[in-house]
Simulated scan of single mutants.
Amino acid sequence: MSSRAALDAAGITDPALRRSYLRCRELHARYGRTYYLATLLLPPARRPYVWALYGFARCADELVDDLGTLAGPADARAERFEAWATARRAEFERGASDDEIGRAAVHTARTWGIPIEHTDAFLDSMRADLTVATYPTFADLDAYMHGSAAVIGLQMLPLLRPADPAAAAEPARALGIAFQLTNFIRDVGEDLERGRLYLPLEDLASFGVTRAELERGEHTPAVRDLMAFQVQRARDWYAAAAPGVAMLHPDSRPAIAAATRLYAGILDEVEGNDYRVLDRRARVGLGTRLRVGAGAYVRARRAWRSSSQVPSQVQTPSVQSTSANPNSRSSTGA
Rank of each mutant, 00 (worst) to 15 (best):
S2K: 11
A5S: 13
D8T: 13
A10T: 13
T13H: 12
P15G: 03
P15T: 09
L17N: 07
L17I: 06
L22N: 08
E26H: 05
L27K: 09
A29I: 02
Y31I: 00
R33W: 06
T39S: 14
T39E: 11
L40T: 10
L40M: 14
L41R: 01
L41G: 05
A45D: 01
R47S: 12
F56H: 13
A57Y: 00
C59S: 11
L63T: 14
V64T: 12
D66G: 13
L67N: 07
L67Q: 08
T69H: 14
D75E: 14
A76C: 05
R80M: 11
T86Y: 02
R88Q: 15
R89N: 08
I101L: 15
I101Q: 03
G102E: 00
G102Q: 04
A105D: 05
A105G: 09
R110I: 02
R110P: 07
G113E: 15
E117W: 07
E117D: 15
L123T: 08
S125R: 02
M126L: 14
M126G: 06
R127D: 13
A128L: 04
T131G: 04
T131L: 05
T131A: 07
V132R: 15
Y135G: 01
P136A: 15
F138Q: 14
D142T: 08
A143K: 12
Y144T: 08
M145W: 08
H146E: 12
G147Q: 10
L154H: 01
L157C: 06
L159F: 06
R161E: 15
A163Y: 10
A166W: 13
E170M: 09
P171W: 04
A172Y: 02
I177P: 03
A178D: 07
A178E: 08
Q180T: 03
L181G: 00
F184I: 02
I185V: 12
D187S: 03
V188D: 00
G189R: 11
G189M: 04
E190R: 05
E190W: 02
D191G: 02
G195N: 02
Y198W: 02
P200H: 01
P200Y: 02
D203H: 12
G208M: 05
V209W: 10
R211H: 08
E218G: 03
T220N: 04
V223L: 06
V223D: 07
V223Y: 03
R224Y: 07
F229Q: 10
Q232S: 10
R233F: 04
R235S: 00
R235P: 00
Y238G: 03
V245E: 11
A246G: 13
M247A: 15
L248Y: 06
H249T: 08
H249W: 11
H249G: 10
A255Y: 04
I256Q: 07
T260P: 03
T260R: 15
I266L: 14
V270G: 03
E271R: 14
R276S: 14
L278F: 09
R280V: 03
R283G: 04
V284M: 10
L286K: 05
R291S: 12
G293L: 13
A294H: 06
A294C: 11
A296I: 04
A296K: 02
Y297F: 13
Y297W: 13
A300F: 00
R305L: 11
R305F: 05
S306H: 13
S306E: 13
Q309R: 11
Q309V: 07
V310W: 08
N325T: 08
N327T: 10
S330R: 01
